[in-house]
Nucleic acid binder design. Sequence first.
DNA 1: CGTAATCGGTTCATATATTGAACCATTGTT
DNA 2: AACAATGGTTCAATATATGAACCGATTACG
Lengths: 269, 269
Amino acid sequence: MSSASKALDLLSLFSTARPEIGLSQMCKLAKRDKATTYRHLQVLEAAGFVEQNANTKHYRLGPTLLQLGRMREATVPRETGAREATRMLADKTGETAHVSVLSGANLFALLSFESLKHSTRAIIDITTFPLHATASGYCALAFGPDGLFDAACETLNSYTDKTPSTPQALQAIVEDTRHSGFARSDGRFESEIHSLSAPVFDQTGGFCGAVSVASVASRFTPALETLIKSELITASRDISRNWGGVVPAAVEHAWATSMAQQQELETTS
Amino acid sequence: MSSASKALDLLSLFSTARPEIGLSQMCKLAKRDKATTYRHLQVLEAAGFVEQNANTKHYRLGPTLLQLGRMREATVPRETGAREATRMLADKTGETAHVSVLSGANLFALLSFESLKHSTRAIIDITTFPLHATASGYCALAFGPDGLFDAACETLNSYTDKTPSTPQALQAIVEDTRHSGFARSDGRFESEIHSLSAPVFDQTGGFCGAVSVASVASRFTPALETLIKSELITASRDISRNWGGVVPAAVEHAWATSMAQQQELETTS
DNA sequence: CGTAATCGGTTCATATATTGAACCATTGTT
DNA sequence: AACAATGGTTCAATATATGAACCGATTACG
């Protein structure tokens, strides 16, 4: 592991719950030597990625991040292009809607909206989604670049007893996702959460992210599933358009087939 | 220089004018070896600080920056803490008000408000303010850390025929700024713009940014100058307070002296 | 067309920057 | 006053970064 990435890893230790971190605490969290950690922090501070509270000597995120974050959004307006559709999605479904973006082999959380409809709701508080355990991840594996599946298989951590633990089990899920145009995680990452997800595409013509609805498992019904899928289609088209892309015909066709089956299922029941 | 800081330096090569950079071009810009640059980019990509355009193979800023930027603002609400005062400043003066923050040797634009009073108004569309040509920059040189002046002298680009082109000329401006508590750029960056600026301080007790009013030069009168300076004082105190700091007695004293002189000037005229 | 020039990416011996145990200084606690 | 934290520093050992040369694929061009 390069020393640069070790330094960058320190930034991920900050959170809203833990906005300032002292040297000793950071050593424990990062499981690294004090001298090393200190030097890494010096580097980050010089670059404006962290700054030091002059009183407590604790470190916190620095001003450069705001600048770079805005530059990113100014040049690649992902958040702006997804916000309205995601808010609408949460609103229409009454559940938590969120969007993730693929970068390399990582799926990063972009934004999330919680509906006010229910007092219990799914909270999205992770920053990177495991590819093998989340609906968003299955979308990436199903519609994203080829190498992703092998990358995902390297760390098949089990989060719940439903988390797929073999490449074969994962492959089956991915096939199903590719076939239906929707990904599903029924308690595969968190046992109480039932998520549905649809792929999003950008100007390159390829998969670049996923839009998802995370519902509390106990209130997930076929009717809700139909509603969520229908709204996911709208949201995916909308976000893809805002990101300069278009949903490929193959995915549109998979959706159409899925929705027809879903409707049939409901009328017979 | 640590390898981590070399990697981080690559991020500063991106700008709105140059949002995507290929490997070869980046080597030239960073003046570094191709293999080294490539590995640095790999590290940054793994951390989500850059991502690669799948078609062109060019690199651009990554999604992690958006997350960290939001986290920074959530935990150190600079933008939030300056917004109201800046809006008020624009409103009261009828001109464009903006705030910048110092990070390392760069003065970054934080936010800007345009007054609706006039149909012609100053537009702030740059992200980093040159230290030697803007009122905000003079504030940084006058009240900021020591090394800044030498850093500024390294690139004395001329933007107008009034831009100071020698360290001596710049030094004189800085002295005047330190003495009066206000910085002025009368067409030194853009010929039609007359700006006044005041320093802002944070919890460290040191200079950390500037609040400015950019006025159209043709309507800049002594009366307007008095109004702007008076409102700048209010805004600087307000923002400094919101950022956990306080305006040092020396600066308050400089302001008091300046305002007295200004008033004298007006009554005699 | 063939060839020369670029491009992104890779290799491996060399050399340099990173590492961490032990250390110091300061502060707050008992 | 002794103790246990804290943040910060040193230096020999060594793990890591480096860059010239190389590769294969595009692209430019006479």
